[in-house]
């Protein structure tokens, strides 16, 4: 592993240069990852909670047109979209967020490649930052990640003291990105940063994901689902704040009689309309079935399909839930 040391001031100089070049630099705020206008906005605080939403919307927007159409009396014309993959540098991404893109990548490239996702993702540089604080909702350690996980990061930062970071170059992409700035990098010593990462307090492991996987396979009809179904309001905020939920809807929107566009919009499996057939039949007609789908999709189906859990353990869905459903608690209860 290639480890360097960089001072905070030098890091901010790099940021200044990135902004100056017109690239988008995202950094986490309270609510969301926002594009930095001035380096004074950058807060590299490893002890902050995850922002309320991840940067998922930069690679998979909440709403995006997939085509435009023009109708005349007896003809239709289609206009394709060109996604301009702009360089986006994400600075200070939490390990529970860095993971997300690599998890979603499987789905968007399973057989058919979704270039809307790929072209954007290709231009991402993810600079992860170790996380030193957790709250009652965090459970990254239960889904195979950790506050010091480098997975998904191109470059990973570990705060050594108030003014210095250890900078680990993880991927080729990261190496290429940092090369022009090598003047700012000092040679680092791995033992130093290891001391920091080893002392990070880890959230307690709440469940064994393999056991959960097994339990889900045998308990499709468990009465436990009904209890959860009665609680859930089906507002689907959990899907909207989730860094890896990827279900979407495709709808047409007319601007006028002759013009319109086809949109790909975020959707949520907790909505009753999600699986409603036009005939009125609904395979997941009640909330307990929909919640069962949510948990199964994350902890079983996705594992079956792609070998990874569709969850990063960030705890956002639980923090935001208006009726305080805690997914960690529910999954921990997925046992006999």
């Amino acid at each position: 592993m290639d480890e360097k040391i960089i001072s905070k001031d030098d890091l901010l100089k790099i940021c200044q240069d990135i902004i100056g070049k017109g690239h988008t630099l995202l950094t986490p705020g309270m609510n969301e990852y926002f594009p930095v206008k001035d380096v004074s906005q950058i807060n590299l605080d490893a002890s902050a909670l995850p922002a309320k939403t991840s940067y998922k919307s930069y690679v998979f927007p909440r709403s995006e047109p997939v085509l435009y159409y023009k109708r005349s009396k007896d003809d239709v014309q289609l206009i394709d979209i060109n996604v301009d993959g702009k360089n986006i540098i994400i600075l200070g991404a939490k390990p529970c967020d860095t993971n997300s893109i690599s998890i979603m990548r499987h789905l968007f490239n399973w057989d058919y490649s979704d270039e809307f996702f790929n072209l954007r993702e290709k231009h991402f540089i993810i600079i992860g930052l170790m996380c030193s604080h957790y709250d009652e909702y965090c459970f990254c350690t239960s889904v195979g990640s950790s506050p010091v996980s480098e997975k998904g990061s191109d470059i990973f930062l570990i705060p050594l003291d108030e003014n210095n970071f250890a900078l680990r170059i993880i991927t080729e992409k990261g190496k290429e990105f940092i090369e022009p700035y090598s003047e700012y990098l000092k040679t680092g010593d791995e033992s130093h940063s290891k001391q920091v990462t080893e002392n990070v307090k880890l959230p307690e492991v709440a469940f064994d994901s393999k056991e959960v996987y097994e339990w889900l396979g045998n308990n499709f009809e468990s009465p436990k689902w009904e209890g959860i179904g009665n609680l859930c309001l089906s507002c689907a905020q959990c899907a909207f704040v989730c860094p890896v939920c990827h279900c979407f809807d495709i709808v047409d929107e007319d601007y006028s009689y002759s013009e319109g566009r086809r949109m790909k919009n975020w959707d949520g499996c907790q909505f009753g309309n999600f699986t409603l057939h036009a005939s009125g039949h609904n395979p997941r007609d009640i909330q307990s079935k929909r919640y069962r789908q949510r948990v199964n999709h994350k902890f079983r189906y996705y594992v079956d399909k792609f070998g990874e859990i569709l969850c990063t353990g960030c705890g956002r869905c639980s923090r935001g839930c208006p009726v305080s459903i805690d997914i960690k608690e529910i999954v921990s209860n997925c046992k006999d």
Partner: peptide, 17 residues
């Protein structure tokens, strides 16, 4: 918001919706 025929409120998260 759940009514699709006709669609009163667009589901896209743009200003119109």
């Amino acid at each position: 918001t759940d009514k699709a025929i006709p669609r009163w409120i667009e589901s896209s998260s743009h200003q119109r919706g």
